[in-house]
Design a protein around this nucleic acid. Structure first.
Lengths: 187, 187
DNA sequence: TATATCCTACCTAACGTTTGGTAGGCAAAC
DNA sequence: GTTTGCCTACCAAACGTTAGGTAGGATATA
């Protein structure tokens, strides 16, 4: 259980923070989820801020890898873009959880600086991937790609938030459909 | 200061919850903001859950009144719809705050039932107003108005969340512009 | 080969602080 | 003379964090 514990802490903390936020993440529950004692977490992370920053960093790194894999597997840029909402759907599928960085965006005033930086990196990763895809698919001109990418990211985040508040994953699907029908997402 | 204190508590609690959420709302800071002692809050509200429910209820009541006034003042339904994003912009203008119910939607797992019910009522109020306006403006058919209204509400919520995380109100404006350009909102 | 030293991973126990909430009193208003 | 509004003074529980210790494995020295 050498390096495994650190990874287990990271994974469990992510799940807790996706359901309860940074403020709702506490060492006793986290330790219990991992199967160790609260004080033992300090062997792996010097503080809650460092832990949360590591969790958020890992979160956007995993998301970046997932999006790259999605782009690589799709037959073309349009098909990859069409699958983008699936990435956010998975959090809802996973016990009605929220995107970690949506939750932390709400808590931004109470976040340590190092955590806030990682939360912003998550948005940057998403926007960059979307912008690249929008240009490759010929949907928008390169100079307008970033703005459209941000709009898609924000709208998808909002859809996930609303669906979560009702614990209704089909609501997420119909919201995505509405975005497509309205022309925000490629149909 | 008879009924005034109760109103002052309600108002101060709303501002705190819009910045720090339900979990971040605490009696000592709230009392300090009002200018009384923490224990005195219990004279007006029997518990934190009751206080938060009252705050959320007042929040959607105020929003409903504000939206009705907006509809009444606008020359037509399309003009009223165009002003909808202004309602959410005001929270950002007010020290980069978030919609109370967006924050609480994220915290939904940790909310007392009576609070959760009021949070959902807020979304219902917004969706109903939007749906009515969309039909009146002839933008969508009556049977599709609710779905489109939900999409607009979710997208605007997401835009506010993203803009808040960057403390950048101009980002909110460009997101709204993008929604208009894409066809989600009436241009 | 035996032993001394160090590191890793975790523990128990407690720290000071903050949390929501309670008990009881006191002054003014009705 | 009871109700209203707020107070002081607490409380138990939970919070992030620290101190100090233990068991076992790796490494270096004799």
């Amino acid at each position: 259980m050498s390096t495994n514990s650190k990874e287990a802490i990271l994974a469990a903390a992510r799940l807790i923070a996706q359901a309860h936020g940074y403020g709702g993440l506490n060492y006793r529950d986290l330790a219990a989820a991992v199967g160790i004692k609260a004080a033992s977490i300090y062997h792996h992370f010097p503080s809650k801020a460092d832990l949360a920053a590591a969790v958020a960093k890992r979160y956007w790194e995993d998301t970046a890898a997932e999006l790259e894999a999605m782009a690589a597997q799709a037959p073309n840029a349009t098909a990859a873009l069409r699958r983008y909402p699936q990435a956010f759907r998975r959090a809802l599928e996973n016990d009605n959880r929220l995107c970690l960085c949506s939750f932390m965006s709400a808590e931004v005033d109470d976040l340590p600086d190092i955590v806030r930086a990682e939360v912003r990196a998550f948005a940057d990763v998403n926007v960059a991937w979307l912008a690249k895809g929008l240009v490759a698919a010929g949907i928008v001109a390169p100079d307008k790609a970033a703005a459209r990418a941000r709009a898609i990211f924000a709208a998808i985040s909002g859809a996930q938030l609303m669906a979560r508040s009702r614990a209704d994953i089909s609501l997420y699907d119909t919201l995505v459909d509405s975005y497509r029908a309205a022309g925000l997402l490629p149909a």
